[in-house]
């Protein structure tokens, strides 16, 4: 989706900054925002770029760096931790052959930690893009990753 289309969806008012950034970033293949785009957004909303920069670097879902096509976020807070989250994470690391914070060579996957996803009753939990996967086991994770790898559009 073009930036302009996203901008047109929202009132031209500065309080929509975060909504616009979230919406637009979602449509980007590599889930990142560039300075050029942010400048356009700042101009559109008539706000300072220093403010936009401040917002983008404050919220953890925004990124100035390109990421993999699929961003895998693994929760590592206490409820997941006590439910064997480490095993799940290790499986992911091995399968993808990357560490947390890294992207696979084929730019398919980025592995990250996330703060609690609010699904602690179904721990351990991870998210790929907007989809949450719960009650994970190493085997489940293997199947999920295999499924993503198999997708054509990826």
């Amino acid at each position: 989706m073009q930036l302009k289309e996203v901008l047109d969806k929202y009132p031209q008012s500065e309080d929509y900054l975060i909504e616009i950034l979230m919406d637009y970033q979602k449509h980007k293949m590599h889930h990142d925002l560039t300075e050029e785009e942010l400048k356009t957004i700042a101009k559109h909303l008539d706000i300072k770029e220093s403010r936009v920069s401040s917002v983008v670097t404050f919220y953890s879902l925004f990124s100035l760096e390109p990421k993999g096509r699929h961003v895998i976020q693994v929760c590592h807070d206490v409820p997941c931790h006590v439910n064997n989250q480490t095993a799940v994470l290790n499986t992911l690391k091995t399968m993808l052959n990357i560490d947390v914070g890294q992207t696979t060579d084929d730019e398919m996957f980025t592995l990250e930690y996330t703060s609690c996803l609010g699904a602690c009753d179904k721990a351990p939990v991870m998210r790929i893009g907007e989809k949450t996967f719960m009650n994970l086991t190493s085997n489940k994770v293997k199947a999920i990753i295999a499924e993503y790898r198999g997708r054509k559009h990826a």
């Binding site: 770029e49 220093s50 403010r51 936009v52 920069s53 401040s54 670097t57 404050f58």
Partner: peptide, 14 residues
């Protein structure tokens, strides 16, 4: 402006 958050916050230009 404040850039970033937590202990990584920097007072700097954009």
């Amino acid at each position: 402006e404040n850039q970033g958050r937590s202990n990584e916050v920097k007072v700097a230009p954009k």
